[in-house]
Every structure is written in structure tokens, then in C-alpha cells.
Amino acid sequence: MSESVVDPDEVRHVADLARVDLDDDEVERFTEQFADILSYFETLDEVPEVEREAELTNVMRPDETHEGLSQDEALENAPDSEAGHFKGPKVS
């Protein structure tokens, strides 16, 4: 796979979707890295084909409540919280 697979505009678009701000140096660096990562997938072409295992179907659970997390536990990993809520930057 050639390096032209990914261009800088594509990287900017993906960054935009992920709400990540990249400067020009980063765009350049990521353009190369994206191309590298995509090329790794070519390795998959070398994997021999195997019979797929029969897929499971209809895996369901009954509609019964289970004890979940307390508010404190739920917020334990949050960098910031307020009045029982997860707190984050403003969004657009």
C-alpha cells in the first residue's frame, strides 16, 4: 500500500470528528502514522482462510434488575464532577 492512501485533509477530518485539535506538525506526523497503521492491515491478507465457527444467535437475558454502581462509585474515575454529574468542557 502506498503512502498516498492517506492525505492531510483526511487526517483533519477524522480529528474534527473526534473533536481533537491538531496543529500542522501533528497533521503531518499523523498522516504518516495513519498510512503506516493502515498498511499493517495488509498483513491480514497473509492469514490463511479458515472455516468460520458457527455463530451464536439469540443471546438474551431476562428483564430483571441488578444492583449497579453507587453514585460515588460511578464518578470514581471522573476527573471532575459536580452535584452528582460527570463534568466536562462545554460542547458545540
Binding site: T65, H66, Q71, A74, G84, H85
Partner: peptide, 16 residues
């Protein structure tokens, strides 16, 4: 998941 769908007054009390 098995969390209740009763929203509840208190935020983040029906999660897992």
C-alpha cells in the same frame, strides 16, 4: 444491562 430504567431524581444512580 440490568440497571433500572427508572430515571430517578439523583443523577448517575442507575449505572453500571
Amino acid at each position: 444491562c440490568g440497571c433500572s430504567t427508572d430515571g430517578g431524581e439523583e443523577p448517575n444512580t442507575n449505572t453500571c
